[in-house]
Amino acid sequence: MNISQLSKQERERFDFAVIGNWIPPGERVLDLGCGDGTLLRYLRETKEVTGYGVEIDHDSVLACIRNGVDVIQIDIEDGLSGFEDQSFNHVIISQALQAMHATERILTEMLRVADEAVVSFPNFAYRSNREAIAEGHMPVSEDLPYEWYETPNVRFFTIVDFEALCDKLGIEIRERLAFEETGQPVTDDPNLNGSLAFYRLGRKA
């Protein structure tokens, strides 16, 4: 499958399918930075999950309600104190972690409220991103689709960086998948060849 030839919707479905493979049917799921709620809706329709989306943007909240998704409009940057310990099977943060400031706190909180976390993010060390920097520009790509002056992203990090942070926070990496911009799974040197990374995380025993 060549992702760059897919429509936005098909591309989204690709991401959803990767995440969906890690979510057993009937689970309770919390989706942080859930956007318009289409991932939760997809998981509800394909996996019969229950749970909530969390979103701060007003238009996205409206879109969630239209999608029939139970959205909670709060700012994740303030923490997840309203959520009880271990109240979800999975907590997801799909391509939203890079747009938040409180990275460590959010990751730690995610594994407080759920048994497992699923995290996906654009890998800043991906080859074409490195090439753009080498040419003197901030990268713009399928997975980093914004110009530097309009990007909502505030944290730019790599697969290697992320794994080092997980280690520091006592987070166990249970599974990692990386994909090229074209959608091909990457096995060889994912920090160079992976544009988008997906992780299944848990607390270290």
Binding site: R28, D70, V71, G82, E84
Partner: peptide, 21 residues
């Protein structure tokens, strides 16, 4: 309002919460 929302989530009830500007 968030007090109500969190109490509902604790009970796993379906809830939508909008904080309107």
């Amino acid at each position: 309002s968030r007090e109500i929302v969190f109490a509902l989530m604790k009970n796993r009830r379906r809830v939508v919460y909008a904080e309107i500007d």
